Computed example of a mutant assay.
Amino acid sequence: MDNELLPLLQLCDSNFPSGAFSHSFGLETYIQEQVIVDKESLKTAISAFVDNQLVFSDGLACRLSCEILESSRGMNELLEIDRLLYVSSLAMETREGNRRIGERMAKLCMELYSSTTLGEYLHFIKNKQGYGHSALVFAFVAHHLQMDKEKVLSAYLFSSVSSLIQNAVRGVPLGQTDGQKLLVEMQAKIHEAKNRIMKLTKEDLGAVSPGLEIAQMRHERLSVRLFMS
């Protein structure tokens, strides 16, 4: 195995304690309303999440951050991506969930893959001058370890999809076998999403689905919840 992939595998591991296991990012709304009831309906929902939220928000931000770091354009542009991610997330729980996951990942990765740029980003987060997002943390780690940005992007998308599927396995609930089958079926969608992201520009950042945003907002009012968002 290519040694450069090992850090990516660690960040993608469902046991990596980023806090992502506590968030459904609106999917729990669909589960309670019985829009998601089985593997096929979950596949439809996650495909929509990938095509919109991941392509035009998190995934694109990860790619743009990698390119900013590669060109040494400075922290100000990275903080602008960080700010755009935060303010374009209309649902409070999703906005705060991404912030908490990002800050937690930044702290962990400073212990595991310490770098000057990641340390600077964490400093801005701690001093309320940045928000924190896992997409940027992935980019900082990748740049520090000199990884190919397309591999990083594929890993980030896979990690996000894997986390959502594992959370849905608990929430629907589904069997672990169905969850793993769905993860295999989503690999082509992840590859397609990566290729789409590589063609987008900064002006496309934040063009997400109103339906997903509304589900994320409505999650705040669910009477019983397994997840924080």
Score class of each variant (00 low, 15 high):
Met1Arg: 02
Asp2Phe: 03
Glu4Gln: 07
Leu8Phe: 00
Leu9Trp: 06
Leu9Arg: 05
Gln10Gly: 00
Cys12Leu: 09
Asn15Thr: 09
Pro17Met: 01
Ser18Lys: 02
Ser18Leu: 05
Ser22Pro: 05
Phe25Asn: 02
Phe25Leu: 08
Gly26Tyr: 03
Leu27Trp: 01
Thr29Arg: 12
Asp38Phe: 09
Lys39Glu: 15
Ser41Asn: 14
Lys43Val: 13
Lys43His: 15
Thr44Asp: 13
Thr44Pro: 11
Ser47His: 08
Ala48Tyr: 09
Val50Asp: 02
Val55Tyr: 03
Phe56Asp: 01
Cys62Met: 10
Cys66Tyr: 10
Cys66Pro: 11
Cys66His: 10
Gly74Arg: 12
Asn76Trp: 15
Asn76Met: 15
Ile81Thr: 06
Leu84Pro: 04
Tyr86Ile: 08
Ser88Val: 14
Ser88Lys: 12
Ser89Asp: 12
Glu93Thr: 00
Glu93Asp: 00
Arg95Ile: 08
Glu96Ser: 07
Arg100Asp: 08
Arg100Gln: 09
Ile101Glu: 02
Gly102Pro: 02
Ala106Asn: 06
Lys107Phe: 14
Cys109Ala: 09
Glu111Asp: 15
Tyr113Phe: 05
Ser114Trp: 15
Thr116Gly: 12
Leu122Glu: 02
His123Glu: 12
Asn127Pro: 00
Gly132Thr: 07
His133Ser: 12
Ser134Ile: 11
Ala135Thr: 04
Leu136Asn: 00
Leu136Met: 07
Phe138Cys: 01
Phe140Trp: 02
His144Asn: 10
Leu145Asp: 08
Gln146Trp: 09
Lys149Gln: 13
Lys149Asn: 14
Lys149Tyr: 14
Glu150Phe: 06
Glu150Trp: 07
Ser154Asn: 14
Leu157Ser: 07
Leu157Pro: 07
Leu157Phe: 10
Phe158Gln: 13
Ser160Lys: 04
Ser163Trp: 12
Leu164Cys: 06
Leu164Asp: 01
Ala168Met: 14
Val169Gln: 06
Gln176Asp: 13
Gln176Met: 15
Leu183Tyr: 14
Leu183His: 14
Gln187Asp: 15
Ala188Pro: 06
Ala193Asn: 14
Lys194Glu: 09
Asn195Phe: 15
Ile197Cys: 07
Lys199Leu: 08
Lys199Asp: 07
Leu200Glu: 08
Lys202Ala: 11
Glu203Asp: 09
Ala207Glu: 02
Val208Asn: 00
Ser209Thr: 03
Pro210Tyr: 03
Leu212Ser: 07
Leu212Val: 11
Ile214Lys: 03
Met217Pro: 02
Arg218Ile: 11
Arg225Trp: 08
Ser229Cys: 13
